[in-house]
Design a protein around this nucleic acid. Sequence first.
DNA 1: TTCATTTGACCTTA
DNA 2: TAAGGTCAAATGAA
Length: 338
Amino acid sequence: MWSWEMQVLSDELAQGMEKAMQLRFHLCSTSPSEAEDLLLQRIISTFEKALCILKGGGHVGVAPAAAPESSISADGSSRSDDTNKNLCQDFGEASKKRKLQPTWTEQVKVNSGNGLEGPGDDKYRWRKYGQKDILGAKYPRSYYRCTYRQGQNCWATKQVQRSDEDPTIFEVTYKGTHACKQFNDAVPQPESPEKQELKSNSSCYDQLEQNPMISDFRANLRVDTAVSDIQEMPPAYFSFPSTIPCQERENECYPISAQADDNHLGGYSPLFYSPATSGSNCFSSATYQMRDYGANDNTDIMSANASTNNSPIGGIEFSIDPVHIDPDFPFNIPGFFT
DNA sequence: TTCATTTGACCTTA
DNA sequence: TAAGGTCAAATGAA
């Protein structure tokens, strides 16, 4: 089959799964029957299997993971026993290790009126290690790595690329998860109310993090957070498919604790937190599109703007509150841009 | 003095 | 071989 045909087919399957997950997502807020939930679970599972088969990995039920600890290779194919033999030596090589790291992208819109040069802080301390002019891009791409790379062997990196079309939009690509603990000694940084609330709900995220499906999906996750493209969605809590009935999973999302072990973010977008009021939702209101292109390194086609409603993706759409950039937020804080 | 940024060179990958 | 990604020496700021 032609590669583009494969891609189209993959996209279609992905959309099917996305819609099924949306449906399940909605049903969860209306206490669906166990039968309904099971049925949806099977539908989603079927899409998953089809996608896995299409991608040639043959590994069913697990989206490509990319974390170094994962037993799934970056290209989405499962690491069979023979490939497992090579795991140790693979991970011993930093470059390969990096290849296996989860990657996702956020689009951050900043208020140009503030003379901002880049997106705001993401509560991690980054050290710029390079800048490159990218072919066809108006603006250079900046490369950052975690300040604690040496001290704490933290291999998280990020790339910041200013949008050609809209200079107020920065595409921030995160690679790898933070292994460091840097929140106690991090430079105190002002936080928007949204962020503060997000933080307080981190236990909700932690709960979600326990879900193996999340680890599966997050590997090739791409989160577009362009503030301008927010779709209204009825409130509901977010959930990846699992065999746990919705009512039970609800409890996974509700407990809100003030003690946020930020490291559990693992470098993932803080936007995953729900600023849900009264703890009723893990995610609500607006839509973020999580695009899982699955096994292949298809990040290039993942770069479509979040505005599309037809995102051809094996990811899901789920609702969380929009995160607006506070016009008064001091973006010139250390660590992001100079 | 320490830490962050800049930037040219080098490495990797497609 | 070109483009993207990373390294590391030089430089600057605090």
